[in-house]
Amino acid sequence: MNRRTGLLIGGAGLLAVAAITFWPRVMPPSPPSCLTSNELGGFIEVPGGGFVKAADPVYPEEGRPERVFVSPFELQVHEVTNSQFARFVEATGYITDAERNGGSAQFRTTVTPQNPMSWWRLDPEASWRTPGGEGSTLDGLALHPVVHISLADAHAYAEWVGGRLPTEVEWEYAASLGLFDPNDPDSGMRGPNGEARANVWTGIFPLINSAEDGFIGTAPVGCYRPGRIGAYDMIGNVWEWTDSPFAAGTPRFTIKGGSFLCSKNYCRRYRAAAREAFEPDFSTAHLGFRIVRDRPLDSDRAGLVVGQ
Score class of each variant (00 low, 15 high):
24 P>E: 15
42 G>S: 08
96 T>Y: 03
199 N>G: 03
35 L>A: 00
232 Y>R: 04
261 L>C: 03
296 P>T: 08
74 E>K: 14
182 P>Y: 15
107 F>P: 03
90 E>R: 08
182 P>A: 14
280 P>T: 13
103 G>V: 05
155 H>E: 12
160 W>T: 06
250 T>H: 11
167 T>C: 00
163 G>I: 00
140 G>N: 06
217 G>V: 01
53 K>W: 07
107 F>R: 03
52 V>E: 09
168 E>Y: 08
115 N>I: 12
11 G>T: 11
226 P>S: 04
283 S>F: 02
74 E>S: 14
107 F>I: 02
267 C>S: 14
16 A>E: 08
232 Y>G: 03
296 P>M: 09
140 G>C: 07
148 H>T: 00
216 I>V: 11
202 T>Q: 09
76 Q>H: 05
21 T>M: 10
141 L>R: 15
178 G>H: 05
42 G>T: 11
244 S>W: 05
95 I>Q: 12
258 G>L: 13
41 G>Q: 01
295 R>Y: 09
233 D>C: 12
267 C>T: 09
175 A>K: 07
273 A>G: 09
27 M>D: 15
124 P>W: 08
6 G>W: 03
36 T>N: 01
192 P>E: 10
208 I>A: 05
127 S>R: 06
195 E>S: 08
261 L>K: 06
166 P>K: 03
306 V>H: 10
100 R>Q: 10
16 A>P: 08
119 W>S: 03
89 V>P: 09
22 F>E: 13
194 G>Y: 06
62 E>W: 04
225 R>T: 09
30 S>R: 13
177 L>R: 07
221 V>R: 07
40 L>P: 08
224 Y>M: 07
155 H>V: 10
196 A>N: 07
117 M>L: 11
197 R>G: 04
160 W>Y: 14
134 E>Y: 12
219 A>I: 05
156 A>K: 00
95 I>F: 12
135 G>N: 10
135 G>I: 04
201 W>K: 14
74 E>C: 14
35 L>E: 00
263 S>A: 15
277 A>T: 12
138 L>D: 00
117 M>W: 08
249 G>E: 04
47 P>M: 11
176 S>Y: 13
38 N>S: 15
130 T>A: 15
216 I>H: 02
98 A>P: 06
267 C>N: 15
118 S>A: 12
87 R>W: 03
291 I>A: 01
230 G>Y: 09
82 N>M: 06
299 S>R: 07
199 N>C: 02
216 I>W: 01
25 R>M: 12
224 Y>C: 04
18 A>I: 10
79 E>T: 05
256 K>Y: 04
239 W>K: 02
246 F>V: 04
76 Q>C: 06
172 E>L: 12
173 Y>A: 04
179 L>R: 14
249 G>V: 01
49 G>Q: 08
306 V>Q: 12
228 R>A: 15
129 R>I: 00
46 V>C: 05
305 V>Y: 07
200 V>G: 08
3 R>C: 11
75 L>E: 10
101 N>K: 06
